[in-house]
Structure formats: structure tokens, C-alpha cells
Write a protein that binds this DNA or RNA. Structure first.
Lengths: 169, 169
DNA sequence: CTAAACTTTCAAAAATTATTGAAACTTTAT
DNA sequence: ATAAAGTTTCAATAATTTTTGAAAGTTTAG
């Protein structure tokens, strides 16, 4: 397979994976494009390569900056803005984990916390079932939260080294 | 907060979380409802409690069975089908991990494998960047795959015990 | 066999989400 | 100050996803 075809395949695959995980397809594709580009690209170039409108490109680029996945770059003597992606996949993984933890896991933990104070008849099997499910999910979510917290602080080699070693034991 | 209100909040939260992770909101809500129900429910009861149509309920229930999250139950002397959810959250987590690995991670690993054979000029910085990004993502994805594989085999207490212990070290 | 009870299917409609594109806005150079 | 270059916004439109509901299909009891 040639480079040009490979790039298209990669962008397509990344876009599909993103949409399966609740990330807008275009956003994942722009990220993919920047990931495999050696040089920073302008909005114009991104619009053209992905056949998307200026408005869409602009909003998507701002979102990606908000996720901490890409950055703006200014070239000396030029007014145009260039965009480039952090190429370190471990940073990317951590950044995504960090944002989703903040945006999704934390709100859920908050609600689960509130739900653990729901009152009811201790003899009511419906109440007991509710209470147990909420408590169990709460425990799992807290464990996941702690794990992500640690992952955010860890170095890649240390993280995978430790995890994979434990699994072999 | 009273039980009835708590149930509604839980169903709503679970539905929202699902949709943020690429799982149809109704599917997550039906799952939530069954999770906190002590008794198995009929299609009718689910339709009524969530105000959804028969067609939607039926398709959603079949999907949930396909994900291995709920099961049909037949009560002696009745023709109706009853549905109930596995209440063990660790099983749920493993089941979801297993299905998403199969449906999403594996196809991506396949494509990444193909992309590692893309040919190009070794002196072309664009080619080298592509090659490196693909290789790095491939490595990360393989590690994630191995970790999920181990998780699928593990007991909950062992899994979290090991992970959290390593993190404290 | 046949009627009732129940389940499944799927084309059409509704709801949601993403995208466009032109106008408004901002910045910079002269 | 102003015109050119570039960026942002957002109402309208398009695309996608989800839901409905009625018809078709299936199973069971008598």
C-alpha cells in the first residue's frame, strides 16, 4: 500500500473509532490528519484535505485544543495560524482519559454519591436491590477513578511495565 | 431522596453516560431499569416504565441479550417472557469490555497491522511521521488488548487488588 | 385447525447531531 | 484610518440515528 492510500485509511479508521466512542467523526479525522502530518497545517489545508467547511474546521480545531490534543503555532512573518498535534500517543491517551474523567466519570460519581442516601424500607426487596446496585457501581467507579488518577501521573513505561508484570504473576 | 425519585435519577444518569460512550440511550436506560429491579420484568412493564414503544423495547432487549448483559426468563405456566439483568457489576464491566474489544479494538488492530506495511521513501519526513504514529498507536493498542484479555480472565478482587497495590508502590 | 397471546420486523416519522456558508468580527500592515 | 487577511459565529440545512406503530409472524391452548 502507498502512503497516500495509507493516510486515507488511517483517517477513516480513526474517525470511525472516534464515533463509536462518542467522539465526533470529524474531530477524530482532523486529529488523525494532524497526527500523521510532519508539518503543522493551516485551516485551509485541513478544509481541503478533509473536504469540510471553514466553520466546521474552525469549531473542530477549537474543540481539539480544548481537549489538549492539538496546539496553535505561529510562523514568523505570517499571519496564518498553523495547527499541530502532540505525537506522543501516551500523552494522547492520558489527555483523553483526563478529559473524559472530568467530563463524564466525575458527574456520575457525584450522582451515585447522592443516590447512596436514598431512603426506603429496609425490608423492601426493591429498595435493597437498588441500594446494592448503586453501592456496587459506586465502588467500581471509584476504583476506575483511582486508576485513571494514577495513570495520569505515571510514565508510560512504568505504567505498562507494572500492569503487564502483575498480569503475568 | 425517596426510592421512586432515586430510580428515575439512576436511569437518567445511566442513559446519559451510555450515550456519551456510544451506547444508545434507551439501551442504557433499559439496562439501568433491570439492574435496579429485584424481579424480572416483562416487555409491557419496561415499555410502560420508560414510555417507549413495543418495537423499540423489543429491539433494545435483543441488543442487550446480544451484549450478554441481560437474560430471558420463563415463568412456569406463563407465556410471557421476563427479562432480568446480571447484577454483578464486575461481570457487567467484563462483558462490556469483551464486546467492545471484539467489535472495535480488534478491527482497529487489523487495520493498524495493514498500515504498518505501507511503503514509502525512507527519506521523506511525511512518510517517517506516518510510520512512527502508526507504530506507536499499534503498540499502545496491543497493550490495551493484552490488559483487557487479562481482565476478562481475572477475578474482581484479584484485579483491583493487584492494580491498586502496584499503584501505591 | 384456529383463535388468542405474544413477539418480531421494518418502512416511515421524529429527534438528534453535525455541517454549511455567509455575515460579523478581529487583527495587522500600510 | 482603512483595506486586506484571517477568524469566529450561528441560523439554516443536511445527515444520521433513534423511535414508532402497525402488519406480519410465531407459539400455544383448546
Amino acid at each position: 500500500m502507498e502512503l497516500a492510500e495509507g493516510k486515507l485509511k488511517f483517517i477513516e479508521a480513526w474517525g470511525k473509532l472516534g464515533s463509536e466512542w462518542g467522539i465526533n467523526r470529524t474531530m477524530a479525522q482532523v486529529h488523525a490528519l494532524l497526527l500523521i502530518s510532519a508539518e503543522a497545517l493551516t485551516t485551509e489545508e485541513i478544509m481541503e484535505q478533509l473536504s469540510i467547511s471553514r466553520g466546521n474546521a474552525n469549531m473542530t480545531l477549537r474543540d481539539l485544543i480544548g481537549w489538549g490534543l492539538i496546539e496553535k503555532q505561529h510562523k514568523a512573518g505570517e499571519r496564518k495560524e498553523y495547527f499541530f498535534a502532540d505525537k506522543d500517543v501516551w500523552n494522547i491517551a492520558r489527555q483523553v482519559a483526563k478529559e473524559r474523567k472530568k467530563r463524564e466519570l466525575e458527574p456520575v460519581l457525584k450522582i451515585l454519591g447522592e443516590l447512596s442516601y436514598v431512603t426506603g424500607d429496609e425490608k423492601d426487596i426493591e429498595f435493597k436491590t437498588f441500594q446494592k446496585s448503586v453501592a456496587d457501581i459506586n465502588k467500581l467507579a471509584k476504583n476506575a477513578d483511582k486508576t485513571i488518577e494514577t495513570m495520569l501521573k505515571a510514565e508510560e513505561s512504568w505504567f505498562w511495565g507494572s500492569i503487564l508484570k502483575v498480569f503475568k504473576a
